[in-house]
Design a binder for these strands. Structure first.
Length: 271
DNA sequence: ATGCCTAACCCCGTTAGA
């Protein structure tokens, strides 16, 4: 059992969760149920697929950027202290896809991303070049924050399978945009900046831990999944990491999203 | 093997997801 520092009888822990819900309209009840059961301090949502949000529990402040049919990300934070920094990733004013949200909350810069999938990887599609350019733009932004000594974390659906142990069958993913050599190079650049994959800090060699399972072919009951939803932490935040877990329960709910939530716990700054 | 799901939009088949 982990000993938590106690101050005035209150466990000084922040819980931050991230979940690609694959349409907030279809998953409104699931999102509300998750919030009620886990009571996170912060929830990142991706793939909302709407221009506006349905009703969600009122104790959360909501920052949201959306569009019709595709993409869409939101950050729900307890209280009313969140400050919007940006709802667009710098580096391409013509890119209007709703995939990026950056806020300041409780002394931490919180960045929620829905990173482009990138498939198909083929000469006649712009999707993979768009993904790699998007990752380069994200790198530039994270580098700025790092050099500014701003404590931050970036979480969400990265559409990156970092290593062989992060998928059920590596041979099936060779050449795919989620497992491509160029995608891996960009991922390594994030790490080389001095950022840490929260899950791998605490579970460096753990296998069979996934956040996404295809709807097809019985992938979920067979645990044929991939780990593509992540939290990357700047050093000061990594020092505060207490736990990182994948909540498998919502993937088993009726009419589930194909992703399930990932959660981290941080000790509070006063420790 | 782009397919044996799922969601959105609205064309009730096509596009996208991963």
């Amino acid at each position: 059992m982990r000993v938590r520092r106690i101050f005035f009888g209150i466990a000084m822990t922040l819980t931050i969760a991230s979940w690609n819900v694959n349409s907030i309209k279809a998953r409104q009840e699931h999102a509300a149920k998750f919030l009620e059961e886990k009571k996170p301090d912060v929830l990142f949502l991706q793939e909302l697929k709407r221009e506006s949000l349905p009703e969600l529990p009122s104790e959360y402040q909501i920052n949201f950027v959306g569009q019709k049919t595709y993409n869409g990300v939101a950050i729900l934070t307890r209280g009313a202290s969140a400050q919007l920094i940006s709802s667009q990733l710098a580096g391409d004013p013509d890119d209007l896809q709703a995939r990026y949200l950056e806020i300041e909350w409780e002394g931490i810069r919180l960045i929620n991303i829905y990173l482009p999938n990138g498939n198909p990887v083929s000469a006649d599609s712009d999707k993979f070049p768009y993904k790699i350019k998007w990752m380069g733009r994200l790198y530039n932004r994270l580098k700025e924050l790092k050099e500014g000594n701003i404590p931050f974390l970036v979480g969400g659906d990265f559409n990156v399978i970092p290593r062989e142990i992060d998928c059920y069958d590596p041979s099936a993913w060779v050449g795919d945009a989620l497992f491509h050599a160029q995608t891996h190079k960009m991922w390594r650049m994030f790490l080389n900046l001095g950022l840490f994959d929260a899950f791998r800090i605490l579970h460096p060699d753990k296998r069979d831990s996934y956040t996404f399972w295809d709807y097809q072919g019985g992938a979920w009951p067979r645990n044929r999944g991939i780990r593509i939803d992540h939290f990357l932490l700047s050093p000061a935040i990594a020092d505060r990491l207490l736990s990182c877990s994948i909540d498998l329960t919502p993937r088993g709910w009726e009419k589930a999203s194909d992703h399930t939530p990932i959660l981290i716990e941080l000790s509070t700054q006063t420790q």
